[in-house]
Design a protein around this nucleic acid. Sequence first.
RNA 1: GCCAAUUUAGCUCAGGUGGUAGAGCAGCACCCUCGUAAUGUGCAGGUCGUUGGUUCGAAUCCAAUAAUUGGCUCCA
Length: 643
Amino acid sequence: MINITFPDGAVRQYEEGITSLDIAKKISEGLARKILAAEVNGEVWDLSRPLRTDATLKFLTWEDEKGKSTFWHSSAHLMAEAVEDAFPGAKFWVGPPVERGFYYDIDLGENVISESDLEKLEKKMSELARQNNPYIRKEISKSDAIKYFEDKGDEYKLDLLSGLQDGTISFYTQGNFTDLCRGPHIPSTGLIKGIKLTSIAGAYWKGNEHNKMLTRIYGVTFPNQKELEEYLVFLEEAKKRDHRKLGKELELFTFSEKVGSGLPLWLPKGAMLRERLQQFLQKAQIEAGYLPVITPHIGSKSLYITSGHYEKYGADSFQPIKTPVEGEEFFLKPMNCPHHIEIYKASPRSYKDLPLRLAEFGTVYRYEQSGELHGLTRVRGFTQDDAHLFCMPEQVKDEFKKVIDLVLYVFKSLGFTEYTAQISLRDQVDRSKYIGTEKNWDMAELAIIEATREKGMNTIIEYGEAAFYGPKLDFMVRDAIGRKWQLGTIQVDYNLPERFDLIYIGEDNARHRPVMIHRAPFGSMERFIAVLTEHCMGKFPMWLVPVQVKILPISDKYMEYAENVCAELKNEDIRAEIDERSEKIGKKIRDTELAKIPIMLIIGEKEVNDQVVSLRRQGKGDEGSKTVKEIIDMIHQEVKNKK
RNA sequence: GCCAAUUUAGCUCAGGUGGUAGAGCAGCACCCUCGUAAUGUGCAGGUCGUUGGUUCGAAUCCAAUAAUUGGCUCCA
């Protein structure tokens, strides 16, 4: 008999060799139907694997992340079976679960697959799922495994095998499909009910662009049809919020093939929105002791040689701008820091000047790969809400903490209440991509870790995510439908001060090296506005929305009164417009609702007689008569509270 | 940059198998002067992304190129 310990601490005895599925069945049939895998001594196991020693046991269901991953991994095998059926001779690389679903990288040989094939594959998968084939695990010797895939002619699996040790190799078979796999898997295909193949992509074998491109098929599955439908609704919801669609509809920005791809053109409404955001941050920064600076859009090549950007990105960037002078070259600035450094160097600095906080909404240009461009979130020209803080080493932590406060204030003001902070450190193994000394890096990394700890922040650490000159603290916000976006960043930098030989005179009258902090709470205005648009579905808060009030006269007869009301609002710095078209009120209301303008003031005979307006709020309907003064106070209040 | 796909009027989209384009909305004009999500009538609007090829003839077939989309790689 063996002792099995459950998560609640209960210990029960079972005969040796019992499977977790049998244990579940003894507890209840309902449980046995629901569970997908078992966590045995912290390791995820097949339910059918016999337990031979004392162990802790936790049943994994769809509600557990690990249960979901197992489910999706098994779904990847199911998809592979369907693909092999449709494309005999297909060779399979790996098929892991991902955050939302799974994929499988496949070499289809001469065959090409397009989105239209996905529906057929889905049907086949459903058919195979209904057969309710068990996933059968089989331990196999390395030599037998190699022979199996040699016979199949699958060089990818042979490559995988070459990295595995004999005695640790297992095959899984369901129906007609057998795959090299560590497992674990769900008991059988019948558990997979809702199936959706979402997209096709090319993916390099082993992620290396010199290797062959495999076909990657993405999918997502669910244990019931209802959850699939909810997921499809989520996709629809995401589509509705897409900032590219809303940006067009709300006339915020556009692109022109002639201007160039990845170079956004801000339309008047978008520009007004963006300027208001800038004013908001500028005000907060002035209160926090930042000083504004303005620098040009280009800089000489030598500047970027000194900074290290040329060596790192020169070849993959916009190429130099030449001048009539032989050998003279300028680059579009990809970063504002070197320019700000030169401002620091413009005069001798004393410890009394520090921290020196230089801020600029600086537009930078980076030649992003064509396939990477995406709406406003990934562009080739964008404006960073940049600032560089030059401080003494002993000030770093305090300054860093102040920046954290500023970033969180910005998020809160814009309705991003949920965020995660990621500490991005060097790659633990490959140090070749970084500049600077080991000592400087250690100091910088420690400063971030300590500052976040002292702030009591929840952080996650990611290795290999640092910038090439220093570690970062990246902020990820969660939007209204649960998606994560990376926004602000704070970076500690001991390296650029050294490369530019920055100094300050200390209290001891000696020369010392300052430390730089790079920071951008929004990240970039473009990206931030994209995220904000998707977060609020284009219904911007009162303080930001381009048009706050639309005045809707019932007919032309009330136009004069409408104009008086409009003038009164404008006089109070309220952004108001009149719908002067001779349309019916229903039509005007509909158009204003669709334009997502928060306040509608309807004016007819009754309002003129009573010297009031009829208030209607976007998405809410008629809210009755109000005086213009009441409307003004209401809007001012909402603007003030950043509602 | 790579894989797959898309590109037709300002917007959203129709246009088997080749015979030089069509709808709805938006716009403009007229009618209406209207009470809380689309009044009606009419008009105008397109080198079918671009360039080349095949053909008597190309939105349609082929090639190149550009932009866009979903991924991969990248992201100072």
